[in-house]
């Protein structure tokens, strides 16, 4: 009798094709240039200072940095949170209704990411994000939540 319990050997470890990495499973996404998102952040801040929240929100949600690294993603999250926290809660529903379906889904992704980040949990931001979440889902139904969960592209 050998010492190894051969029935318990994980045979998949000897097969290089047995699993796919997260990178391989990612559907094709455009590459991200960090400078573009720095410019975008400037643009959004400019719009915010002019008080054009609707356009700022659309600009921030238009091209999520799916192909970017964690640094780009974190800085873009900061940009989106700036817009979200600058909004009056009575305006949220009309803002959400003005977004396209794709942008609504991106918004939900940022709400989830915001709630899981330190930034989104501090300075009373969590309450604002929850209000956004509730009002968005009232408008869109559960589709964006399902897409947030199932989408392999992360913001």
């Amino acid at each position: 009798m050998s010492e190894i319990n051969w029935r318990r050997i994980n045979i998949d470890q000897y097969d290089p094709d047995s699993f796919m990495s997260a990178e391989e499973l990612l559907p094709p996404v455009p590459p991200v240039v960090a400078a573009d998102y720095a410019n975008l952040a400037q643009l959004v801040r400019g719009l915010l200072s002019k008080g054009d929240i609707s356009q700022a929100l659309i600009t921030a949600l238009e091209n999520p940095p799916y192909g970017g690294d964690e640094i780009v993603k974190a800085s873009h999250l900061k940009t989106v949170l700036e817009v979200l926290t600058a909004t009056k809660s009575s305006d949220i529903t009309s803002l959400v209704e003005s977004l396209s379906q794709e942008q609504q889904t991106t918004l939900i992704k940022y709400l989830y990411k915001g709630m899981s980040s330190i930034l989104g949990q501090s300075n009373g931001n969590a309450g604002i994000l929850l209000t956004w979440f509730q009002k968005t889902i009232d408008t869109t139904g559960s589709g964006p939540i399902v897409r947030h969960i199932s989408d392999r592209r992360t913001v």
Binding site: P27, S142, S150, D151
Partner: peptide, 27 residues
């Protein structure tokens, strides 16, 4: 490839056979 990369649950040829449809886990 589905744009979100979600599971493809079912796929079907149209009656003519000239197109396919599929449903994925992203609703």
């Amino acid at each position: 490839v589905n744009h979100t990369g979600a599971w493809i649950h079912d796929v079907a040829f149209s009656p003519s056979g000239d197109s396919i449809a599929y449903c994925a886990h992203d609703s």
